[in-house]
């Protein structure tokens, strides 16, 4: 799942931004959220000090691992594998 903390104009992301971004990346079959009120930062270890940020969420909605910066998607997938095998 994707979440946008800022929209195309640089301001808080809106539903229009989520719709446009989904179309831009080919209308994926996963959600693109607009986090206009920055609620994700309060609910996760994400800081918004750099982006992108990635968090792995387990089936019970617990936070497995989080990363900040580019190039951590593979690491996140490895975290999923490791957590699922526990």
């Amino acid at each position: 799942m994707f979440a946008l903390f800022a929209g195309a104009s640089g301001g808080p992301a809106t539903a229009d931004d989520a719709e446009s971004y989904a179309a831009y990346i080919g209308n994926p079959n996963f959600p693109i959220f607009a986090d206009a009120n920055n609620v994700i930062v309060d609910a996760t270890p994400m800081t918004q000090e750099s982006y992108p940020e990635v968090c792995v969420i387990a089936p019970d909605m617990s936070l497995v691992q989080c990363y900040a910066g580019h190039g951590f998607v593979e690491a996140a997938l490895d975290d999923v594998k490791a957590h699922a095998s526990q």
């Binding site: 979440a3 903390f5 971004y21 959600p31 994700i40 996760t44 940020e53 968090c55 089936p59 999923v80």
Partner: peptide, 20 residues
């Protein structure tokens, strides 16, 4: 408006970025 708990039961990678 979506409740994130509706995505329970599976692993998810939450990728936060900006649209610009």
């Amino acid at each position: 408006t979506i409740d994130t708990y509706d995505f329970a039961g599976e692993y998810h990678i939450l990728y936060m970025t900006a649209a610009f």
